[in-house]
């Protein structure tokens, strides 16, 4: 819900203490956001990149830059803004290495798909669904994907995302809508595997 008077930051007291050098207060902030942040970083980055390192770097940067945080946004928004920048840096670094060393990730493609039908509990199936969802999400165009990741992983609202990405709110709302439509279409395609006629048409 949008309102004229934004809610006060629930982390304000911890942030104030951490800004004054209270390490325990910052530990509490790390504990509060580590799960979401590592999930967000993992979603944004390739599996070949060490996401834990990036997550650690995000928190350490936040600690270092905390005296400069003026509280114009929520701490969470600020933290995920740092994470976005770190992910972009890590991605660029990874791409550079990939260019130099060659693609090492394609080696496991020859090993074949693991057999998931032997799982008696539904745990694996849930994970598979989750993985499929994340995979479809990662196939979206970058701007749409970015919005959805910030919305679902970081749980930021649209005005916050607009401010973070420096995008007009109306533009962002439309992008958000389009992202959902595209995601719905791709998930429908996954749920209903292509029939032989559709395959024939596609191959023709």
């Amino acid at each position: 819900m949008l309102s004229l008077f934004p809610k006060p930051d629930p982390d304000a007291s911890l942030v104030a203490a951490a800004r004054n050098g209270d390490v325990r207060a910052f530990d509490a902030l790390v504990y509060r956001y580590q799960s979401r942040l590592s999930q967000f970083v993992r979603a944004r980055l390739d599996s070949a990149i060490d996401c834990d390192d990036v997550t650690q770097d995000v928190f350490v940067t936040a600690w270092r830059e905390l005296p400069g945080f003026r509280g114009r946004s929520r701490f969470k928004t600020w933290l995920f803004g740092i994470a976005l920048n770190h992910c972009a840096d890590a991605w660029r670094k990874h791409q550079r290495l990939r260019t130099i060393l060659g693609d090492m990730d394609s080696a496991h493609e020859d090993w074949g798909e693991p057999d998931r039908t032997t799982d008696p509990s539904g745990w694996t199936a849930a994970l598979v669904e989750r993985a499929e969802l994340q995979q479809e999400l990662s196939r979206l165009p970058e701007p749409e994907r970015q919005v959805l990741e910030l919305y679902y992983y970081a749980e930021l609202n649209l005005p916050e995302i607009a401010r973070l990405l420096d995008v007009n709110l109306s533009t962002l709302k439309y992008r958000f809508y389009q992202a959902h439509r595209h995601l719905r279409k791709s998930l429908e395609r996954v749920e209903s595997p292509p029939t032989p006629t559709r395959v024939r048409r596609a191959s023709a």
Partner: peptide, 9 residues
């Protein structure tokens, strides 16, 4: 993660 971040901080 908490320990690693804490040590670096």
């Amino acid at each position: 993660l908490l320990d690693a971040v804490g040590a670096r901080i």
